[in-house]
């Protein structure tokens, strides 16, 4: 398949997985709960990265996709007593349909226009869940008392980490194939993709569907971790920005970058909480994101790669 895998790729992934599996032994339950949020944010950031980081179709409406996954499984389990083993796959399928709907405007528009339309998708969804059938969606108050899949921080941590690492690894591998190259090519020059005999429509549809798959998976498991769903928290522009900033801080179009970006951002926000309990925290992360772009626009991932290469070079030089 020509993935270009080296021994250190295996070593780093295995090392990371072992480190994360030992995490419950090393940190407090409270920290563990923070990491659970980081895991979910990582899933959402990876989902955003597959679509926007790769193809350049910037989505400001990712909660639209996450929301479809979350609401579908919440409604099915709460209102219709469907088991989660059916509700979650159905939620993912629904999200992929949502992804296809979001893809339609991308046939014609790109750049900032697409970003605005995607934002409209999220707003639309926010209004719709409150107005249409509030008996199903719970209206403005959302739903609580949903089925939770795990009990306690440790189990919740293991489940969220397992999903996250499977998503991260499989997407990382997928993007190392020629498909990853083709999707990046769309961001660079869509006309030249056509001129190379490839159908951008097909590639974009695949990116939207894959992104929706991951968003739906993350959204569905997220509500079954929280046990509740609240439209105001879900369809929130700050939530969009958290996803995007996590991806960009980590390094867009790298899959691994958004994963680390999500961890970095979650802990940053968490440690700022005692000092800045309100929305001012977002100001701080804005400043940090800005400084990082000035120093290294390609994000933390590139900084790590540079360090790694320097280390490797030292080793090669003896």
């Amino acid at each position: 398949m020509g993935l270009g895998l080296k021994w250190y790729h295996f070593a780093l992934w295995i090392g990371f997985i072992i480190f994360m599996l030992l995490m419950p032994e090393m940190v407090s339950k409270g920290t563990l709960r923070t990491i659970i949020f980081a895991n979910f944010l990582a899933i959402f950031a990876i989902s955003w990265d597959i679509l926007s980081g790769r193809t350049g179709y910037i989505s400001f409406g990712h909660p639209f996709l996450i929301g479809i996954g979350a609401y579908t499984t919440a409604i099915l389990t709460k209102r219709f007593d469907v088991g989660v083993e059916y509700a979650i796959p159905l939620a993912i399928a629904m999200t992929m349909i949502g992804g296809t709907i979001m893809f339609l405007p991308a046939l014609r528009i790109k750049g900032s226009y697409f970003a605005l339309v995607s934002l409209a998708f999220m707003e639309l969804m926010y209004q719709l869940v409150q107005v249409i059938r509030p008996d199903l969606t719970g209206g403005t108050r959302g739903m609580s008392g949903l089925v939770t899949l795990t009990r306690g921080a440790v189990n919740g941590y293991y489940l969220s980490f397992t999903i996250m690492i499977i998503v991260a690894l499989s997407m990382w591998l997928l993007m190392r194939t020629r498909l990853g190259t083709a999707l990046s090519a769309i961001a660079l020059n869509e006309e030249s993709v056509k001129g190379s005999g490839l159908s951008p429509t097909k590639l974009k549809l695949f990116a939207f569907m894959t992104s929706a798959f991951v968003a739906g998976l993350g959204g569905a498991f997220y509500v079954h971790y929280l046990g509740s769903i609240a439209p105001r928290a879900l369809f929130d522009i700050n939530f969009v920005f958290t996803i995007i900033v996590a991806t960009l801080i980590g390094g867009a179009s790298t899959i691994v970058g958004p994963m680390f970006g999500a961890f970095f951002l979650t802990f940053l926000l968490e440690y700022l909480r005692p000092y800045l309990p309100g929305a001012e925290r977002y100001l701080i992360y804005g400043v940090i994101a800005l400084l990082l772009y000035m120093y290294q626009p390609k994000g933390l991932y590139q900084i790590m790669i540079n360090q790694f290469n320097r280390f490797k070079k030292d080793e090669d030089d003896g």
Binding site: R178, G197, S199, F206
Partner: peptide
């Protein structure tokens, strides 16, 4: 050049290396 050489099939893009 790799982009020009790719087949217009997502499956082949994934399963076959450059």
């Amino acid at each position: 050049i790799r982009v020009g050489l790719m087949p217009d099939s997502i499956w082949k893009m994934i399963t076959q290396g450059p």
